[in-house]
Amino acid sequence: MQQGGGSESEVTWEDQQNINKFGRLNNRFHELEDEIKAAKELNESLEDASNELILSDEDVIRFQIGEVFTHMASDEVEARLEKMKEEASKDLERLEEEKESVLAQMSELKKILYGKFKDSINLEED
């Protein structure tokens, strides 16, 4: 966000607040991208784990909780994995929704700010 050029348009407190809000949203957007990436990875790992579980014919599985691997019956592991998968995909959904809403708010603010400052303001990333 930089203002260039020598033309002086009046910057009001309201404009400043819009710029601040845009900055916050932009920050959140980047955080969300990271969080979404991590959530996707988690979803994939859990999916891989349950596929492996189906293929394996062991009755007792070593399941990591915290630092230790507990010996657990495979059906219990399956139940746990299902629950974790459910939570992880809900989490991912929630993050994607937030991202959409952040993007929508950002484009609203862009309209307002570009409308007022034309090319004296730059809201794009390099």
Partner: peptide, 9 residues
């Protein structure tokens, strides 16, 4: 960050 933005502006 708001303060940073205000200062930059």
């Amino acid at each position: 960050r708001d303060q940073v933005t205000i200062t930059q502006v």
